[in-house]
Design a protein around this nucleic acid. Sequence first.
DNA 1: CTAAAAAATTGACGCGCGTAAATTTATTCT
DNA 2: AGAATAAATTTACGCGCGTCAATTTTTTAG
Lengths: 342, 342
Amino acid sequence: MDGPKIKNMQEFADASGISRPTVSKYFNDPTSVRQSTRARIEEALERFDYRPNIYAMNQNRQLTKTIGIVVPYLSDPFFAEIARNIERRCLAKGFWPILFSSHGEKEQERDILDNLRSLKPGGVLLAPLGRRSDRMAVERFCKAVPTVLFDSNIDGVGQAFIGSDNGQSVPLMVEYLCRTGSPPCFFEMPPVNPNANKRRDAFVSAIQRLGHEPQIVRVEGKSWEFEQIGFDGGLKILAEGGFPSSTVLCSNDRLAIGLIAAAYQLQISVGREPSSQIRIAGHDDHPFSRFTSPSLTTIAQDYAAISSKSVEVLFDVIEAGGDLGSRKETLFEGKLVMRASA
Amino acid sequence: MDGPKIKNMQEFADASGISRPTVSKYFNDPTSVRQSTRARIEEALERFDYRPNIYAMNQNRQLTKTIGIVVPYLSDPFFAEIARNIERRCLAKGFWPILFSSHGEKEQERDILDNLRSLKPGGVLLAPLGRRSDRMAVERFCKAVPTVLFDSNIDGVGQAFIGSDNGQSVPLMVEYLCRTGSPPCFFEMPPVNPNANKRRDAFVSAIQRLGHEPQIVRVEGKSWEFEQIGFDGGLKILAEGGFPSSTVLCSNDRLAIGLIAAAYQLQISVGREPSSQIRIAGHDDHPFSRFTSPSLTTIAQDYAAISSKSVEVLFDVIEAGGDLGSRKETLFEGKLVMRASA
DNA sequence: CTAAAAAATTGACGCGCGTAAATTTATTCT
DNA sequence: AGAATAAATTTACGCGCGTCAATTTTTTAG
């Protein structure tokens, strides 16, 4: 890191005693040059700390080494955690992840996809808003850029989908709850994405299979502040005679977190001890769910598996030139996490 | 959105009947062209949906319209929330925010700053890791790119600092707690950034000013999973005779969230009623702090003010050509948020 | 050691845009 | 109306790099 300042690749090539085209090859794939020249270049790199101008690198490329990651709501630790995993894996593959959050807004999602297009990313990992997505815009985008959907599916859109298997996880929880106490009712809010509906449907069929009548309690609210919705809704329901069952299965953990807070405020005891008045269960194993009072019994989605599989499939798509032929859906099973709340 | 495909600015200029240099001017600042030509360009834009190649746009620029946002830990909803605010404000100014998270790791932070340099951002908003930052790397970066620090200060580094005034907020809380019950002890973990130390120091002087002996309880732990640290530490302390006071002021909300969970598990009642065994207070008004059981009394940092001021100052710096002359520090006061826990 | 294969070099062009100087056209002001 | 001013056009160059074809050098295989 000394010597005269290096301005461009030509100067760096001169300084390292290698021709510019070879240096260029090196930067696009270090393994594509002979071991001995690679060593010489990397030695020079330490002396001069030159970095190619990424803008010049990419201007004539139709596909860059950038990976776009789009999540619906970054303030939700679930997505923050997933994004973190994905970022690491992209970096390990020598790609450059760029993170975007739609912040729950359709327009934002559309803008992000628009902007992303001009970034010419090598591929995109997209967790769509879901029902609120501009389906046309997403579809158009996926046709132009190799895209893998995760978390929330949109039928037929994108090269693949990776998510968790609500059809397995919800019955797992329902059976556990029925086995250990009164059959649960289902607590939901207006669905923001297909998962919410799938979970409700899975609940209905699972509880019917066990010979019970499905009971669904729905509260209103249209923001992404799920905890607040669960709290407000829970407060109202609990104050007005309570849920139809003393066991409540929530559509997701964030809703459950709000509901637990509401129960506490009304001095309704939550838990699986005989003395408790209500049992509450969630779904997702949200990072905070182990710190509720009582800690939340839930279904653990396999963060690591979902993110690593998503990245893996995306790179398959990229290496296949943007098209796999058929759209693959991968669903991971959830695991029951028994804590104190149910 | 019909007609023949537009490949570059020349073709778009031809199609819209305007010269290329004028079109170029338009894209760099739509207000810099006459109203009538602007209208013609925008009309053509609707017909052809052309977008300039951002890579070609930026390759000859020493400063681009990109704003880098770097936070230490995105899974922390506090930073996710701040980032969201900042993003919006940058977009409103016609800039392009790009978000990065150090994920609590020094190497990540260094890599991000390195990569950011080759992005040639117009400016950067940086919430450094703090004590774990590679100070030299940060310093070097700030000399090369207009940078405003926020949340966590590093003396003399960057063009400005925006944060919250621990010297005001902590005494505010201490006085409240002393006025309404027994004087608090201070619950902390190994400091990850200067705020932690400032808060402890502010606690000591505030409690002494009120004529009490400062008592500090420290637990170990070196990850960014603060809740877990608070929980594990709290469990141990509460089981081994408890805190030196029946009122505990935690260094931050996440620690408090863990502590409340620990107290619950040990069936120690938390709250400000006379019947409660312990009072617990936090600091930050973390998005989840209203959903703990009981809800957490805390100090609200002014998210909106911090983010808007940060952006504002950054644009001042940018407009001043990267240097304001003197380094400005802005501290916002915290507000006491009285909830049920203390 | 020689022929074949692999890798590096040389020289050159183009990408899409920013930008500058000189010129022409349009707008504003009195 | 004409003069002064503002804006758009024409022309042309350069940025840093990808990439190609032809050539030379180095490595590998027989």
